[in-house]
Amino acid sequence: MNVLRKILFPFAILYGFITTVRNFLFDKGILKSTSFNVPVIAVGNLSVGGTGKTPQIEYLIRLLSDKYKVATLSRGYKRKSEGFVLANATSNAEILGDEPFQFYQKFPNIQVAVDANRTNGITQLLSQNEKPEIILLDDAYQHRKVKAGFYILLTSFDDLYADDFMLPTGNLRESRSGANRANIVVVTKCPSNLSNEKQEEIRLKLNLTCSQQIFFTFIDYDDEIYSKDEKIAVSEIKKEPKILLAGIAKPKPFFDYLKNETDECLTFPDHHHFSDADLEEIQKKAQNKKIITTEKDYVRLKDSNLISQLYYLPIKSTFIANRQNFDATILEFVKRVV
């Protein structure tokens, strides 16, 4: 914790008080939450920063979209459009935001929508001729104007909410007690060989209620990188000089998976909109080398002048154990509501 964050501690206390009062008003029904007669699953976190929401949403899409009509609803962070937007063939990352556009590109059999007002967004989705049977709310844990039927709370292995504090001293958007709303807590970005003893230690630290389930996942990187025309094995690409580029919250694991001692790593802010000056600087540094980026960054860069050199590395969320129990819990909830 840096000095400035320590100085701002009184503001963290005030912010925590405000969010606690807000949650109390929603819990008591004084502030209105809207429920819907379709299964609504909210995925989010207590903290700012990357906890792996995108791969978790994609896991749910793969689990559910073969059996049900699925829609995702996101805020569309840093998009240049306003209000409710339903993705179509003319959409791009500037209209939808990078993560929703990634969903739209990867899963053509689902509906992808964005709206900062989640209540309006769900209402609009349900007014479509082909209305969804399930709605996945991306990054909506604190959006309490919608009462989801099921809440999945994510927390990173190396940054557990139990070890954190309220903004601006820490990174929590609300107090740790907000975890009590979760049906499931997923500890993300774990080592793939996380021991049972360490899992039990984390269970005890998070102090979940008897009705809550906990699962542990790790980020599983693809064995190949992809461009618009080809794919190359990671084992091959690791050997050659290249540029690694990331505009995500925590890029170190991505860099570590691909880099060798000759590579240059370029880091940009999360959800960064690449300017012409950025692109010119990247191209100058790359020269004739391949540029490998994250899948989220690729959707923002694929229409740029970097495309002939540009590749991306897909990731997915993989359960260390008990995946079948997670799947069964989600499917049981959906069947109760549909």
Rank of each mutant, 00 (worst) to 15 (best):
D229F: 13
D278S: 08
K231S: 07
V185R: 02
K231M: 06
K252M: 12
L206T: 07
Q199F: 00
I214P: 06
Y257E: 12
I184V: 11
A182L: 05
P191M: 08
D229W: 12
T267A: 05
T293D: 03
N193K: 11
Y257W: 01
D220Y: 11
P191K: 02
K228I: 11
K252H: 04
E261F: 10
H272A: 08
L206G: 08
D256L: 04
D263N: 01
I219H: 07
D278P: 05
I202Y: 03
R300D: 03
T209N: 15
D297G: 08
F215Q: 07
L204R: 13
L206R: 11
Q213T: 11
N305Q: 14
T294H: 08
I214S: 09
F216R: 05
E197I: 09
R300W: 00
I248V: 11
I225W: 05
E230S: 14
P251Y: 01
L244Q: 06
S192H: 12
D297F: 04
I219N: 12
S192A: 12
K228T: 09
E295V: 10
Y221A: 11
N260F: 08
I225P: 03
L206A: 04
Y257A: 07
K284N: 15
K189T: 02
L208G: 11
F274W: 02
L258H: 03
Q213K: 15
Y257S: 07
L279V: 12
P251T: 06
D220Q: 14
V299E: 01
S192I: 10
K242F: 01
V234T: 08
I219P: 00
I214Q: 05
I292D: 02
I248M: 04
K290V: 03
T209A: 15
V234S: 07
K189V: 01
C190L: 01
T262G: 03
H272T: 09
N260C: 11
E264S: 11
S211V: 15
H272K: 01
F255M: 03
I243L: 13
D270S: 05
K285A: 10
P253Q: 10
D278L: 03
Q212A: 09
F255W: 03
N207H: 12
G247W: 05
F215H: 04
A246E: 05
L206W: 00
A233K: 15
T262P: 00
D229P: 00
T188G: 07
L244E: 08
K302D: 06
